[in-house]
Write a protein that binds this DNA or RNA. Structure first.
Length: 544
RNA sequence: GCCCUGGUAGCUCAAUUGGAUAGAGCACCUGCCUUCUAAGCAGGGGGUUACAGGUUCGAUUCCUGUCCAGGGUACCA
């Protein structure tokens, strides 16, 4: 529809011999008094034409065709908006469109099958996922789903490193518990991980091998069994949230196939590095970041995290993605400019990379802040959270807000299955619609193949129809902005219009023609609600 | 110090990315169930969009400065 109006306006402007620099902006109005669609073209032209915007708007409207199959009327409003009101027929048409392929209504081909990779979570396997990881997990997965709906060819990737200092401490932590279980009085180290899972892993080793490794703290078994246990745990948690990855990329692979050396050599060749104090530095300042940074340490013979990160991103380019999306927590915002600078130095097109940064989650329990630390085991795990409030609420809450805002997650509030919960509002709408159709079935009302949609003409029905047609636009916009909260906002609006319709318009009545039309409208609404919920990863309900 | 994010109703947040009278939910009042689920609907109160300037037809949105909050600023990741 937006396209149609744009074309009309283009023709009108052509008639008036007005040249435009950019495309004409046509958008939905905020208020129904202003019509269904509006344009501000006239407001952008006064300087150029040296005429007041109202006059320009009048000229444009005069140049538009007198009658049109989909526009009922056109109004000009101060200071120069041109507002379009659609005909009832146009509004009602959305139902035919939906029923062509209800489950896929809303999908668009903006992505055109292009390969896109979304990297998210990427937590090293040192402990169970926390609530903070949860936000990233759900955000990343929703972004991937949105891109799916925009016809991108999406791959979800998890990047991890099981070789660093943290993993070594994990092994030692398990060893510590191992000895404790065997009756040794071991002093606790501040750095050790203290979660319950460490004890479980240690117990398992005692069960299987007894005291075989009691003098061998560096034995691989401690690190490896901990890692295996933790990774399984992480995958289980993600599964509970309906999150699945296509690839798990281990940093180790970058060393094994020589990628790290390769990149370091290339950077040296193009003089993007220099030696100082025995270390190898990257000339960040030459490539637009504030400081030069160390790539290769002198005190220990190993790389800093920057080098593998750059190498890892090189593989993303080599793997041929058209679009690369990195989802990070706010604690990483300082590191990615270095990576981008490195890639730029290597002549990669960094515009393919889109970085989504989300702010932290603060967890409160009855108004009091819960401190979160993986090491101290004072956190609430994501798993516990899912257990308390369920998958649907967790997923919805994590994306209903802009990623840039801090998220206050009040456990007490989320636990209460009460009115304050927007998830129930949506699910209630889906359950109500199912209920109507159950009743229709009970009364042996056969659904017609060809209901007369022109009977849908109350205010509530128009609002619902108009909002249904918006879904496609929302999905498409989200594909660009990568902001899932636009979907949740839309769904709240749609559900609200449905509840109003439900209250004002009795669906099943003596008027069988009207009943057919309204049944079709209700069913179409349910399809869109469910489609939108699918993107968020929440289930619609038959009954509540 | 410097660099990111935020600051919107009592609370938690929106605002079609520069549009028209800034909207929801919760909380607080008032109505609506003999009828498809009242976990709903209708109505009411509540705002100098942190503050001060600027840009323009038009600013919560963009620019500058100030204040407040969170995060970053390692040869940790």
């Amino acid at each position: 529809m937006i396209k149609n109006i744009q074309i009309l306006l283009e023709n009108a402007l052509g008639k008036l011999n007005i040249q435009l620099d950019n495309t004409i902006l046509v958008e939905r109005t905020r208020k129904i008094e202003f019509g269904h669609f509006t344009t501000n073209v006239a407001l952008t032209l006064p300087k150029k034409l040296r005429r007041p915007p109202i006059k320009i708007a009048e000229d444009i409207v005069a140049a538009l065709p007198d009658s049109n199959e989909f526009i009922e009327k056109i109004e000009i409003k101060n200071p120069g908006f041109i507002n379009f009101f659609l005909t009832s027929k146009t509004l009602q048409n959305v139902l035919d469109e939906i029923y062509e392929d209800p489950e896929n209504f809303g999908k668009c081909n903006a992505g055109d099958g292009k390969k896109v990779q979304v990297e998210f979570v990427s937590a090293n396997p040192t402990g169970p996922l926390t609530v903070g990881h949860g936000r990233q997990a759900v955000l990343g997965d929703c972004i991937a789903r949105i891109l799916d709906w925009n016809s991108y060819n999406v791959e979800r990737e998890y990047y991890y490193n099981d070789a660093g200092r943290q993993m070594r401490i994990l092994g030692l932590s398990t060893f510590h518990r191992y000895k404790e279980i065997l009756g040794y009085d071991e002093p606790m180290n501040e750095d050790y991980y203290q979660g319950q899972y460490i004890k479980e892993v240690a117990q398992k080793i005692v069960d299987d091998y007894g005291d075989k490794f009691v003098d061998d703290p560096e034995n691989e078994i401690f690190k490896n069994s901990s890692e295996k246990f933790v990774f399984n745990d992480i995958k289980e948690t993600l599964k509970r949230l309906d999150i699945h990855f296509d690839n798990y990329y281990n940093e180790k692979a970058l060393y094994e196939d020589g990628k790290i050396d390769d990149i370091l050599n290339k950077l040296e060749e193009i003089d993007a590095t220099y030696k100082k104090d025995g270390a190898i530095w990257f000339r960040g300042t030459k490539y637009g970041v504030a400081d030069d940074r160390v790539l290769w340490k002198s005190v220990v013979n190993e790389a800093t995290y920057r080098l593998p990160d750059i190498a890892y991103h090189c593989t993303k380019f080599e793997r041929g993605y058209d679009k690369i999306i990195d989802v990070f927590g706010a604690d990483h915002h300082g590191t990615y400019p270095d990576v981008l600078a490195g890639l730029k130095a290597l002549d990669y097109n960094t515009e393919k990379i889109q970085v989504v940064i989300h702010q932290f989650v603060t967890l409160t329990r009855g108004g009091e802040k819960v401190k979160m630390s993986t090491r101290k085991a004072t956190y609430v795990t994501l798993d516990e959270l899912i257990g308390e409030v369920g998958k649907d609420v967790v997923r919805y809450f994590f994306v209903m807000r802009n990623a840039n805002s801090h998220l206050d997650f009040d456990l007490e509030l989320a636990k209460t299955e009460g009115d304050e919960n927007p998830v129930f509002y949506l699910q209630y709408a889906t359950a109500r619609i199912s209920s109507i159709h159950r009743k229709a079935k009970r009364l042996n009302i056969k659904t017609s193949d060809n209901p007369d949609y022109s009977l849908l003409k109350t205010k509530e029905e128009y609002n619902l129809l108009y909002t249904l047609s918006e879904f496609k636009e929302v999905v498409q916009t989200c594909g660009k902005t990568l902001e899932p909260q636009q979907i949740t906002n839309y769904l709240q609006k749609l559900a609200s219009f449905f509840h109003k319709f439900y209250t004002e318009c009795v669906v099943i009545s003596d008027d069988s023609e009207l009943t057919q039309a309204r049944l079709a409208l209700a069913k179409a609404t349910r399809f869109i609600l469910v489609n939108g919920l699918k993107i968020v990863g929440v289930d619609g309900l038959e009954k509540m």
